[in-house]
Amino acid sequence: MSVLIFLDQADNNIKKSSFEAAGYGAAIAKQIGVAAEAIVLGTVNDDLTTLGQYGVTKVHTVKNDALNNVDAQVFTKIIADAATAIGATVIVFSNNFNGKAIAPRLSVRLKAGLVSGAVALPDTTSGFIVKKNVFSGKAFANVSINTAIKIISLNPNSFSVATTSAMAEVIEFATTITDAKVKVTSTDKVVGEVPLSEAEIVVSGGRGLKGPENWGLVTELAKLLGATTACSRPVADIGWRPHHEHVGQTGLAIAPNLYFAIGISGAIQHLAGVNRSKTIVVINKDSEAPFFKAADYGIVGDAFEVMPKIIDAVKKMKGIS
């Protein structure tokens, strides 16, 4: 018996959200008294023995370039084979793009109940109950998984990982790789910026900034803080900023440590995408803006006057003059 953790990669490096999944899976393994094992598909540059520091004892690898692009069908088959081979009773994914593609298929394949978007360790005192986000971050559901094998996908940035100096054993997993029916013909990535879904700090602008020519206030602060930039829906719809920056109910839902909102009123649909952020800062000249009710810190004031001062203060704090 064991917990199997799927660790996904981007550009031959294991993703941050997967390290969280590793720590989370290892914590479950400890809780139910079994070993934590991981599986990595494709070729990665990481030294996989270091996964031991998250509590993983064995890492199963299938080193094949054909697995550097994710085809959910191909991946599901291999992960199901590995889960069966090692007798996994719990399988953990990150609830990221790849997790959302693979975990539901695996649930059907293994007849294993799936909870996606978990935010805490399962309650195993009687049964197996997993807390997850529902109603777009406005509530939690405690979901009981009633099958012998359980699958959990963990929301990014919702579990703090503790590390040790242990090392993991790396083993090649012998399997057959089926042909991908989904052929990737090209990829287009924003280079040099942390993806929004993984960002710890997000600086975001809304219509209050009046036009794309004023976005320097957002990008300069973001650069100073090592943050990723985002925007509200109207801003993406008017075309001031690219669609992939849109956070909110119909855009991307994020949960950074700091969400810094400039000139965004905080409509309920916007809040649904950012309300899981640990700290929310709102700069808005309208003291009645609904966002202040959801914020931790705020300034009622004109962004064009306030932001340059904030940028200067951050520079001073960072020792940049």
Partner: peptide, 27 residues
């Protein structure tokens, strides 16, 4: 495969701490 045992609402926010627009350095 699954059933919902119960729901919870997130704890209420403590309330916003407002900083004066004249002193953004404090933020």
């Amino acid at each position: 495969f699954t059933s919902i045992a119960s729901f919870d609402l997130p704890p209420a926010k403590a309330g916003v701490k407002l900083v004066s627009a004249d002193n953004p350095e404090e933020l």
